[in-house]
Design a protein around this nucleic acid. Structure first.
Length: 277
DNA sequence: ACACTAACCTGCAAGC
DNA sequence: TGCTTGCAGGTTAGTG
C-alpha cells in the first residue's frame, strides 16, 4: 500500500476539490480498520477548504466557504486503499466503500482489504497524530536526531526506520531500497551503525522519498492517484520485489528474509552483516 | 522503555 | 480444474 510518496501524490491530485461544496455522502461499507463515523454526512453543505498530509494520513479540512473550519477528516489508505475522483455516474466497483459527491465530481474511497480508515479528527483520534515522529523530508529528521534515537536500540535497523515513533512515512519498499543504497544489512542492530552510516541513511531516505514523489509514487499492484493514474517509481526499484534476480550493482542474486513479518530483500554481497562498508 | 507477535481483510499466485 | 497455502505499500494492541 501506499507509503509516503503515494499518499503525498494522492493528496496533491485531490487539489481540484478544494473550494468545492459537498452535496451528498454515501457510506456503503462502514467497517474499515475503525468504523466510519455514522455522522459523516455532516459534510453535506460544507466546502473543502484545504488538504494536508501528516505521515500517511491525509487531513481534509471542511467548513463554510471563506469561513471557519468545522470538520477535519482524517483519511488513511491502509495497505490497499485509494481515493479517486470520478464522474458521479461512473459504475461502482467492488470495494468502493465511501462516496463523497461534490457539485460536478465524486470522491470515492476504495479499499479491498479495509485496513484503511476514515475518521473525524477529534479528542479521541488526535493521539494517532500526536504520537507520530518527525516527517522525513523536514529538517527535524536529521543525522543527529536519528543517531540519538538509535543509541539504545538493538532491534534491526530496518524495523527501526519503519517505526512511526522514529520517523514516519517509510514503509517496506523505501526502507528496503534505502538500506540497499547505503550498503547496510537490514538485520544490523540499529545501535551498531556508525555515525557515517546514519548520515548516509538519513540522506538516502530523504533522497529516495523525494525521488519517488517526483515520479508519482510506486504502482505495484493497485495503487493509483486521485486521477486514476499509476506511479512510475517502481521501475527504478533495485531490490524490493527482486528476490532471486541479479543485483543491479554486482549481479549476486538478491535474497529475501523476513524481518518483523515483512519480506526484506537485500543483496548479500553489497549489504554484508559482519563487514559493513 | 523495548522487542516481538497477532490481528484486522480480500485477492491473487503458486503448489499440489 | 479445484483446493489449500502463503503473501501483499500498514498500524495498533497486547504480550513478555
Amino acid at each position: 500500500m501506499p507509503e509516503l510518496p503515494e499518499v503525498e501524490t494522492t493528496k496533491n491530485s485531490l487539489a481540484p476539490l478544494i473550494g468545492q461544496k459537498v452535496t451528498t455522502v454515501v457510506v456503503h461499507q462502514s467497517s474499515l480498520r475503525w468504523p466510519v463515523p455514522n455522522d459523516l454526512d455532516q459534510l453535506q453543505g460544507q466546502t473543502l477548504l484545504r488538504l494536508e498530509r501528516r505521515a500517511k494520513y491525509i487531513l481534509a479540512y471542511f467548513g463554510q466557504a471563506g469561513g471557519v473550519e468545522q470538520n477535519i477528516a482524517l483519511l488513511h489508505l491502509g495497505m490497499s486503499g485509494s481515493l479517486t475522483l470520478v464522474e458521479p455516474e461512473r459504475d461502482l466497483r467492488k470495494h468502493d466503500h465511501v462516496l463523497i459527491s461534490f457539485e460536478h465530481i465524486q470522491l470515492r474511497y476504495h479499499d479491498p482489504r479495509r485496513f484503511g480508515s476514515i475518521l473525524w479528527l477529534n479528542d479521541n483520534t488526535q493521539t494517532l497524530l500526536s504520537k507520530l515522529a518527525p516527517e522525513p523530508l523536514t529538517d527535524d529528521f536529521n543525522t543527529d536526531y536519528l543517531w540519538q534515537k538509535i543509541q539504545n536500540k538493538t532491534a534491526a535497523i530496518k524495523t527501526v526506520i519503519m517505526d512511526n515513533h522514529i520517523v514516519v512515512g517509510v514503509g517496506n519498499i523505501y526502507a528496503t531500497e534505502a538500506l540497499f543504497h547505503t550498503h547496510i544489512h537490514p538485520l544490523r542492530p540499529a545501535k551498531s551503525l556508525t555515525l557515517a552510516e546514519v548520515t548516509a541513511l538519513t540522506d538516502e531516505i530523504k533522497r529516495i522519498l523525494a525521488a519517488a514523489i517526483a515520479l508519482g509514487g510506486s504502482t505495484l499492484k493497485d495503487y493509483v492517484n486521485g486521477l486514476g493514474e499509476n506511479g512510475y517509481f517502481q521501475q527504478t526499484l533495485d531490490v524490493y520485489g527482486r528476490a532471486k534476480e541479479p543485483c543491479h550493482r554486482c549481479s549476486t542474486l538478491i535474497e529475501t528474509i523476513r524481518i518483523g513479518q515483512r519480506a526484506s530483500a537485500f543483496c548479500p554481497d553489497c549489504q554484508k552483516f559482519d563487514n559493513p562498508i
